[in-house]
Nucleic acid binder design. Structure first.
Lengths: 122, 122
DNA sequence: ATTATTGTATTAAGCGCTTAGTACAATAAT
DNA sequence: ATTATTGTACTAAGCGCTTAATACAATAAT
């Protein structure tokens, strides 16, 4: 996994987001076992306590669950995963439009800017 | 000004962003005087020290400057403001596309989602 | 001249996040 | 049976953010 952190927000929240994204993008497939707290912590170069906190937090969503001593697993409920993926996409879209409309851009300008950005990133 | 804060990031950084946005959206017009540190702090319901920290930070961009005892003022350089507005719009667009592409959405799906969100927000 | 207002600086306390270190219980692996 | 691995729990220290409470210097307003 490609961990990226900024220092303006708690690490554990960024961990939650990135693992969440990892599941929704099928990097952690439905039903698969997630690496152990210690392994994930090593991989992310983060204290095990911080990773533990993130994983517990992530369980609130129901995307993962822990089996007391055999490990942690991604849910097999693909419908749920699809729903959460769609929810997140909508949320990002809403946020984006809110932000950019405050800058005074019109719908046409927004679409144009997206087209341009697509070209640049190719 | 309509201040909104979340508790997952330093207040002073959120202040910087929102005042920055206030200038780029002409809520604080070029050349105009910004309210005093104390008034802004009261308005935002924040400690004066926190607001002071945000304003000093914001001066790095050159959008505002302080006149030792008469107050703080927005730059009159409209070209600069336009440039920063465009930069910010681009940055938001890039971030948005990065995030949403990780969820596996295609360009067509992204455009469709934007169209839908536009409809919903009307 | 006096007063009010401006930006600025300083110190102290409280709190949450992060890391470090250690420990325990339950199960899997041997 | 023994060992390794799993999630979990706890305490302590360091650090940054926030608030509180003052204080000072320079200028505007009176």
């Amino acid at each position: 996994m490609n961990w990226i952190f900024t220092d303006d927000r708690p690490i554990y929240l960024q961990l939650v987001e990135q693992i969440n994204l990892g599941i929704l993008s099928n990097e952690f497939p439905p039903g698969s076992q997630v690496p152990s707290v210690r392994d994930l912590a090593m991989d992310a170069e983060v204290n095990p306590n911080t990773m533990q906190k993130a994983l517990v937090k992530l369980e609130e969503s129901g995307l993962i669950h822990s089996e007391r001593t055999s490990g942690r697993f991604v849910t097999e409920d693909k419908v749920m995963i699809d729903k959460l993926r769609n929810d997140l996409a909508k949320e990002h879209t809403r946020q984006f439009l809110d932000n950019i409309k405050k800058l005074g851009l019109t719908k046409i300008e927004i679409i144009a800017m997206i087209e341009n950005t697509f070209k640049e990133e190719k």
